[in-house]
Design a protein around this nucleic acid. Structure first.
Lengths: 143, 143
DNA sequence: CTGGCTGCAAATCTTTTGCATCCTG
DNA sequence: CAGGATGCAAAAGATTTGCAGCCAG
């Protein structure tokens, strides 16, 4: 937790609760997931605080904001470069840690300066494969 | 345009305008972009019609809904598998047509059945590279 | 102390929906 | 002519913001 103080964050009890919830969290929670979880400890917790804190952490490059779920933003405390495997039915997200070589032909690069990349794999998770079509979504995600 | 009738779409004038705007469109427009464009021809055009039509086309697999821009959904009439190169400053999106081999180690696959993948490359477009920090965003996208 | 943080409510923005009317096939 | 499509307005979600009071450093 010291690392957060180091980047100039005031460590309020609310923030410690949010940071604690996020630590090692592999579920890629949404702002609401986070709000629900930390509200248990802090009944007065507000969405504003959750969003403010997430935005602050994002600016400090301490979390990633994932643009993977069409319905809402998801957050990832793992800032190591990695990719995601998304269940098109229940929207569960798993991490893929592997370094892919993705050269872009000059002709396609269109003069861009490339900073990074992020791969989204789409699939059906084991649970949704079993639970026949009982998924939350009747219409799966793209692809 | 006949292909749309073939998939069971009623071709109303509004839809023809939307389809016409989307045809060969490489700008990955948002619902609002589309609304603004077709409103010129149909001043009574409503957002409901735009969204309804886009949703219908998506279900028919005639367009892709891109979850790339954190602020809003973007739509792509090009349903061929391809990837995207996004300017983190102005959010301009370019297409990358290239087939990458992306094997997932079994251990990482977590029992998922893989359906497809989509790569997002992040970078800075030529225009934003020149126009020093005059970008729309002060805070760039993830990565 | 003081500037940053919290929490409430109101505002904003995107997207969805109910419903009466319209019009394509 | 019927069922799907349109358009208006209202609703629903997600996210942002204004602001007064609070508290960590």
């Amino acid at each position: 937790m010291e690392k957060y103080k180091d980047i100039g964050l005031k460590l309020t009890p609310q923030r410690l609760a949010i940071l604690g919830y996020l630590e090692d969290n592999k579920e890629h929670p949404s702002a609401e997931d986070i709000y629900r979880a930390v509200s248990k400890k802090f009944p007065t917790m507000s969405f504003a605080t959750v969003y403010n804190t997430l935005e602050t952490l994002r600016k400090k490059r301490s979390i990633l904001q994932l643009t993977i779920d069409p319905a809402k933003k998801r957050f990832d405390p793992n800032t190591e470069p990695h990719h995601h495997l998304i269940c098109v039915k229940c929207k569960m997200i798993a991490d893929i840690h592997r370094d892919y070589k993705l050269p872009i032909p000059n002709k396609e690069r269109a003069g861009f300066e490339i900073i990074g990349n992020q791969i989204e794999f789409y699939g059906i998770c084991p649970r949704c494969k079993t639970t026949k079509s009982k998924g939350v979504l009747e219409e799966p995600l793209a692809l």
